[in-house]
Amino acid sequence: MKNILLFIYRNHVFFVFVILEIACFSLIANNNTFHRASVLSSSNQFIGRMYDLNNEVKEYFKLRMINNQLAVENAALRSMLYESKYFSSKSITSITDSVSNQHYTYVPAKVINNTTDRRSNYLTIDRGILQGVQPEMAVISSEGIVGIVKDVSKNFATVISVLHKSSSISSKVADTEYIGSLVWEGGDPTVAQLKDIPNHVQLAEGMLIKTSGFSAMFPSGLNIGTIRSFEIKPGDNFYSIEVKLLTDMNSVSMVYVVNNLMRIEQIELESQTEISDK
């Protein structure tokens, strides 16, 4: 004990110096958050690492819960987006003209679901009965045709895509007035097939295919696509034509539902004719 006191007394200058320096460094550490962080991180590195390890293990078991939380949050945020809002106003464009009667009206709609990879593809749009959408109305995009309305609910409608096995759309080769029907044989969603064009018609690649207007759904003269290739199979009286669709069915988002105001009249008349024919 005596020796220790003697040692301290002999080196008392050094001890005072050390104490003063310790005071300085504690002042530094207290003053500056950067210094504080550095000092703390080096002195508590071991404890910090233990905490990290512990946390990592715990977190792994919490992943399912965290995933659910994030999914719920995502859904909440997504529902706040502009795209999630449903605008219920009847935004129907119609033109009143005293000379020519309105034949078609258009309901703008948004595609909210779409497939192109199946043999029979459907779209869902965000307009329904309340906005004047009825079954068997045509759906077009600004580039070309999209499909035909199948079922409607209050605010939604399903659409039979052009890319459907039973889809058959009356169409014509522009400038020739020859009528055929456009079908889809599956596969490439950008290409459809045009049937029933007789083999004496002069065709060229790039010729425009339009709607004929014979179907009581589509107005006449709407663009469908262009001829990509054509051939006459041996012994066949008709062309096999590949049509490149103008509407990109993969990315179509804004569409119009076509309301033919005289459709019922036309259908009734046609069915009368068919009945009287029998």
Binding site: L20, A23, F25, L27, N30
Partner: peptide, 29 residues
């Protein structure tokens, strides 16, 4: 011992006015 305390207090005064914690005091000590 006196010079240690003079050095410490000199640095501390500069530290207080420069808002540098204790780096001047550490250096002067």
């Amino acid at each position: 011992i006196p010079i240690l305390f003079i050095g410490f207090s000199l640095g501390l005064v500069v530290d207080v006015f420069s808002n540098t914690g204790g780096i001047h005091a550490a250096a002067t000590t």
